[in-house]
Amino acid sequence: MLRTRFEWVILIIVATLLGSAWIMMSQEPATAGSSLLTLAEAPIVGHPAPNFTLPGTVGQEVSLHDLAGQPVVLNFWATWCAPCRVEMPAFQQASVQYNGRAAIIGINQGEAAKNVTDFGAEYRITYPLLLDTDQQISRLYEVRGLPTTLFIDADGVVREVVIGAITPAVLQDRIERLLAEAGNP
């Protein structure tokens, strides 16, 4: 143990100098964002979201790359999944509230187009419901349970993966955070 005041003073000075130097050395360079270019596409936080193209219920095809420049919320769901049904109105409300500023995309896991269309009509869903009939995109995104929701920023980077139902407030909180970061609050 330190015994004298002198030893304490030396320790505090050394800690101050080393700490300050380390903080300066750890400072992120202004071009830190360019490191994203080295990362492979992956469905985990920090990596560019894997691209996909899927057909929707009304025949249109949607590609993730086409949505670049705005935050994207990807919601994996199924009609038989009770928590998915509970959170669906929140996604619908968000799609109206953030229309043109953020994209809400529902990806149905492995069900027939008619079931998904009927469900969308029943719940008055107006945002794109895409058909992942062979579950290839669910596997690509390593979806282990429904519902699973990914928040992707305007640069196409996965920012958060939420497994389980989310509330309207959480959805709003995350979208607004991504919009603020993109300079579009």
Binding site: S20, I23, S26, E28, P29
Partner: peptide
């Protein structure tokens, strides 16, 4: 300026 917030808190 690129400083790590948690480093400053820890410091």
């Amino acid at each position: 300026n690129g400083y790590h917030g948690w480093q400053l808190v820890a410091f």
